[in-house]
């Protein structure tokens, strides 16, 4: 576990600069938002999940709708969740519909958002950073 200020960033995960994490599970990738992201957002009241089967693209600086995995809402803000990898949505976390607060209480475990069948894993992983680099990145924000 790496600490960046008050925020956690577990080792072994890949991170995007948009504050999503990726956990590799064989060919599949589990995705969620980071501790930092949930903290900035505040109490999550609703999670808009992607449809299973939807194709998404890895997020770049020029963001488009095809890069969106859905959205996370607090009472007075909506944040789009961008996909850290390209691929097809394989599974979504249905528990979030009843208990959106899991994003706050357990961002890296119970609060996962979806599982992706990544289509260009090897090349795209290079765009992501590890826990240590992510912690450094947070310090500069």
């Amino acid at each position: 576990m790496v600490k960046a200020g008050n925020y956690d960033a577990p080792d072994g995960l890949y991170y995007s600069r948009e504050h999503e994490w990726v956990k590799l599970e064989g060919k599949l990738a589990r995705v969620g938002i980071t501790d930092y992201a949930q903290n900035k957002l505040g109490d999550v009241v609703y999670v808009e999940l992607p449809e299973v089967g939807k194709q998404v693209k890895q997020v770049t600086e020029q963001k488009t709708k095809e890069m969106e995995l859905g959205a996370v809402e607090s009472i007075k803000a909506v944040s789009a969740v961008y996909s850290p990898l390209s691929g097809a949505i394989k599974e979504t976390n249905a528990a979030l519909q009843e208990r959106p607060e899991l994003i706050n209480t357990s961002p890296y475990n119970e609060g996962w958002i979806c599982v992706l069948d990544a289509s260009a894993l090897e090349t795209e992983l290079k765009q992501l950073i590890d826990a240590k680099a992510y912690a450094e990145y947070l310090k500069k924000l």
Partner: peptide
Amino acid sequence: LQTREQHIRRER
């Protein structure tokens, strides 16, 4: 459910 409304979600 104010996130449905214009002052938060704007064009969406």
